[in-house]
Design a protein around this nucleic acid. Sequence first.
DNA 1: CCGCTGCCTTGACAACGTCAAGAGTCGATC
DNA 2: GATCGACTCTTGACGTTGTCAAGGCAGCGG
Lengths: 198, 198
Amino acid sequence: MSTSTLRETVLRAAVDHIAAHGPDSLSFRQVAAAAGVSHQAPYHHFTDRSGIFRAIAAEGFGLFTQALRAAEAQSDSDPTVALLEAYVDFALAHRGYFRVMFRSDLNCLAEAPEVQRVADESFDVLVDHVHDLLGEEASVDEIRVRATAMWALAHGLATLLIDGPLEPKIGPIADRRALVRAVAAQTGLGGRRPRAKC
Amino acid sequence: MSTSTLRETVLRAAVDHIAAHGPDSLSFRQVAAAAGVSHQAPYHHFTDRSGIFRAIAAEGFGLFTQALRAAEAQSDSDPTVALLEAYVDFALAHRGYFRVMFRSDLNCLAEAPEVQRVADESFDVLVDHVHDLLGEEASVDEIRVRATAMWALAHGLATLLIDGPLEPKIGPIADRRALVRAVAAQTGLGGRRPRAKC
DNA sequence: CCGCTGCCTTGACAACGTCAAGAGTCGATC
DNA sequence: GATCGACTCTTGACGTTGTCAAGGCAGCGG
């Protein structure tokens, strides 16, 4: 029935497992067994265990870039807030990917240039957005500070919500997106005109 | 010479290893060998491998609470900014601890009430600070939003700086503390009077 | 028909976490 | 002073893991 390749099967199984149980307990041999092949079959598609994580990270950053670009492009809301929301939404909807993407010890960004490249595309959406927002006359420092603030806020929200202690601490969150918007407003990152025309 | 117990020796070695190579590659047997004892000796002090992580998390949150309280108490600066700085400073100065403290799959906060307790003390410093800052008349929602904003910003900065892709992306950071302060100012979380007297 | 390449299997190895049982050293009790 | 038990550590074993090495087997161009 399944026309998918072994590579895809393994990747999907791995992402599912990671979303449910975290990356550390992922077993090369288990995913092989689950796919009904020998324990060395996946080894042929991924050079080693961390190769799976590199592949997941690469695919994840691709999806991430798409999500961020789509959010920025939608015309009916503040693009900064939309980016923040998309960042958090992605983390929660694809925690299997997200967890791997930002665990540098797993995907070894430094030694995996192809992952580094797709990751850069994602991050460029953020910093380019800040660039556009502040306009030409903005200083390098202004851009750095603004981009750092926005990125840190998004990433902090995402990680604290995924498996962080935020919700246990401040109580159940009825409407998560409303909270994200409120935080954006609180920090002055939202509420700007959709695109600074002049 | 060393009068320290095996428990302390193992713990210190583990934290050092984690700071250098991350938590996943930590080997029960290696720390035992490094301490010059049999591979089962540490097993007596920590019920299992995750017991080491639980102990590290507990100790780490203790240090974290101290650091946050000290920062809040210092009278010569904005306490909100001081808390942010302390959060980030702690993460960078004690990455061995920090990485474990916020990896819920390692220390299993839910099943380790003693870790949960000391962790709560740390987080209470943050939310109590927001409570004091906003005063009595603040609504529950206002407090939640403000606390979430501050916490997310601090945590995002910390995690992005520890092993995140921030610095590779926005360029080398000459003065990290200045960046943290600038971000605080940008987001309106700093610049308040040191203590809202009335 | 030969050989090559891509995909997968089988077999082995060291290292790992963990269970089980035992040895040594203490202080308290009789 | 001998006996017991608690505490601390050792030794040995088991199953599982990631990885190396070698072989099998399709399909396909010469």
